[in-house]
């Protein structure tokens, strides 16, 4: 049997399509989690109103905010899931090394993020139609517009990709040592409490970290921030996974 040279690109491509099929269930959970978020959003994600003189106005606000949050959670969990042992072992049943496996994972998470972004942005519309059909309210659009679809999908995608890279990194740490299952939540909650009790007028560290992204109003700068962080987390995770043995 003649030896063949295995190319990295070809292997990553094969692994990627393999993963799309192998992880198909994550897509059904996406549909499930977004439907759930829509259900929760039916009462409106916010409301206000006033009554003065002879006019009373009640306003309910509909937006895909909750769907976005749920989709973020989904992306985070999906990323953690694919770092677990069974999922890594699926790769090694066929041709791979650790690098190609990680690259294919990144591609998969990217695709999942794109799908998550598209569905999350569009599901806001379904939410509106459901509310218009089943609630006794007059529905009005606030700005919106098609150009916002592109902005929405783009920025949602980078958010989802960012959070999956964090999930992927955390999942990887847990794969090295189960100690991290304890350490990470302790660190997270610990800093929240520590800073709450330290009597300094400081916002919690994690809150600052989140604001680093959420307060950025320039799209290009946001994307730059998100991409740099994403690349950093994926690179770290990949270099850690590169030493991990296959145990089954």
């Amino acid at each position: 049997m003649s030896l063949t040279t295995t190319s990295l690109v070809e292997t990553v491509k094969n692994q990627y399509f393999y993963k799309l099929k192998a992880n198909i269930d994550s897509f059904s959970s996406l549909v499930g989690i977004q439907s759930l978020a829509m259900l929760f959003s039916l009462g409106g994600v916010g409301s206000s109103g006033f009554s003065g003189g002879d006019i009373s106005v009640n306003i309910k606000y509909y937006s895909s905010d909750m769907i976005f949050v749920f989709t973020m959670i989904w992306a985070f969990i999906t990323a953690i899931t694919i770092t677990t042992k069974p999922y890594r072992n699926y790769d090694f049943t066929f041709v791979t090394n650790r690098l190609s496996s990680s690259l294919a994972n990144v591609l998969f998470l990217g695709s999942a993020g794109l799908l998550g972004a598209i569905t999350s942005v569009l599901s806001g519309n379904l939410l509106q139609i459901i509310s218009a059909l089943f609630m006794d309210e007059q529905l009005y659009h606030l700005s919106g517009g098609s150009s916002h679809y592109i902005l929405g999908i783009l920025t949602t995608f980078f958010y989802l990709f960012l959070i999956s890279s964090i999930g992927y990194f955390i999942g990887t740490l847990v794969q090295i040592s189960k100690v991290f299952v304890v350490i990470i939540p302790v660190l997270f909650i610990g800093t929240l409490f520590f800073q709450a009790f330290s009597l300094k007028e400081k916002e919690p560290f994690f809150w600052n970290m989140i604001q680093f992204y959420t307060t950025e109003t320039t799209v290009s700068l946001f994307i730059l921030k998100a991409v740099l962080t994403t690349v950093a987390f994926f690179t770290l995770a990949t270099s850690v996974l590169n030493r991990l043995e296959v145990k089954r």
Partner: peptide, 20 residues
């Protein structure tokens, strides 16, 4: 005339509002 309005206002979802 006493008037009561129930409006449902649909706006852009979160990440869009961050930039608009």
């Amino acid at each position: 005339i006493y008037q009561e309005f129930n409006f449902a206002i649909a706006g852009n979802g979160y990440p869009v509002r961050q930039f608009t």
